[in-house]
Design a binder for these strands. Structure first.
Lengths: 117, 117
DNA sequence: GCATTAGTTAAGTAAGCACTTCAGTGTTTC
DNA sequence: GAAACACTGAAGTGCTTACTTAACTAATGC
């Protein structure tokens, strides 16, 4: 249920490459074949295959081959795992800031709005 | 205002490394000095410096040196940019699925589960 | 059945990364 | 003011990555 750190690692690594991110972007608009994914990418089909394999290993993308065409789609649950990791960290930090704000407000009641700069 | 693709690239790349992610994780619980960041990481201080530099270049972390101690903290806005990129893709896909569901429900009212292979 | 299409695999290469060590710099402590 | 501390920078090393080309397999189209 929770994020397996190893899997999370693969997913972040997969998203680190701009080409792979463009593939994910394309897939977020709907399923696509390998050639469709490759088309806007200015690299060999072979290279796209390798990126695709990485995306599949990470769990971000799944694909199925019918006849001679492999159709790829996004796995939103995996994308959600990455999103959650980031969200948790951001909110942990922001929660800290809030509590700090409360503390300051209580401790120095005469200076409530002083926090500009 | 929107995500600069180059910056986004740096941020995803920064988060791709497990060590750097542990640094972000540590910082999400509050500011820390370089040595504090290094302490749980089983690598030289120099290596941590290099990771820190990358995190700063990406915009995810900011730091300030006072005396001989450099104190680092998270930049939640940057983390939010990454979060938003992912969230937009996930929701784009999920929106697609919803519309597809509506379409199927309207088109084949008697055969809701009819999409058998 | 032969050419075309769509994908797959293997091997090789160049560049990038994650470290290391070591030799500094500026700060504090005594 | 010497020693300890907290970091900084440069250079080097070995591993990983992103790509390429080329040879191959399996559907389709005619």
């Amino acid at each position: 249920m929770l994020h397996d750190p190893a899997q999370l690692d693969l997913m972040f690594q997969a998203l680190a490459d701009p080409g792979r991110r463009r593939m994910v972007e394309r897939l977020s608009r709907g399923p696509a074949s390998v050639s469709e994914l490759a088309e806007p990418l200015d690299m060999s089909l072979s290279a796209v295959m390798q990126h695709l394999h990485l995306l599949e290993t990470s769990g971000l993308v799944v694909s199925e081959k019918i006849g001679r065409v492999r159709t790829c789609r996004i796995e939103p649950k995996a994308l959600g795992d990455v999103e959650r990791w980031i969200s948790e960290r951001r909110r942990s930090w922001e929660g800290r800031l809030d509590r700090l704000g409360d503390f300051l407000a209580e401790t120095a009641p005469g200076e409530e709005k002083g926090g500009k700069t």
